[in-house]
Design a protein around this nucleic acid. Structure first.
Lengths: 115, 115
DNA sequence: CTAATATATGAACAGTTATTCATATATTGA
DNA sequence: TCAATATATGAATAACTGTTCATATATTAG
């Protein structure tokens, strides 16, 4: 039921268990990646790479209904992937910081997707 | 029903729509992020940062049943997040490449998680 | 203040997904 | 070949999540 317990792998397993982030950290990272993993939300992020936009224009860029986009924006903002500011009647959204761009570009490089 | 159509935002929206990756690319990126977004699979990735491991030791490091871990490993491998090789009776798993480490570290930096 | 515009939100339904259980496949040693 | 070990997988259920619809809130113009 067990394989070699003196092996390199066993040592790696011990180190891994000892250094495993707590559930709180795992949960936050998980939520962030989950937020950027849905196709409709990914489209929003790819759209916002071209500059900040209000909701109406995001809808224009990615398609779908205003309600659906608004729900998705909330999830992205709650997970610190995008940020928002009010400008008169509009709420203007933009990517939270350069980390977001970097992660998207890394993923595209890794998967051979053209940006 | 429309806000300023000559604004910067409108131009950004046009550019965004024009340069939006196709559904195929969006789907691949989405699947990859979805793969690394589930807590149980994230734990596997954090574990594998300490070196390649066979299934038994991954189970040891992350907890859960052998079956559940095996299902998760399949999803990670299908999405090119991890790779595997056979070594006798064991299948040894490891992170696919440095992109994976980089993405995890970016996320942790962004979210102020200690690694 | 009122109407119009822009955005957000709660509830409900539909589709997706992680886990469990039982079982199958593959490799090794005897 | 047979038994033991290591890993994978199909089906089923339970939990989660995205979208829609209806409606609410907030800002501005008049």
């Amino acid at each position: 039921m067990n394989c070699d317990h003196e092996s390199e792998h066993h040592l790696a397993a011990e180190r891994a268990a000892r250094n495993m982030p707590g559930d709180e950290a795992i949960g936050r990272v998980s939520a962030a990646f989950k937020a950027i993993s849905e196709p409709s939300r990914l489209k929003i992020l790819f759209a916002l790479r071209h500059g900040e936009m209000c909701v109406y224009h995001i809808v224009e860029a990615v398609g779908g209904t205003q309600s659906a986009v608004s729900h998705q924006l909330r999830i992205l903002r709650d997970n610190h992937v995008i940020k928002s500011r009010r400008d008169g009647q509009n709420i203007v959204y933009s990517l939270a910081d350069e980390h977001v761009v970097a992660v998207l570009e890394l993923a595209c490089t890794h998967l051979n997707c053209k940006l």
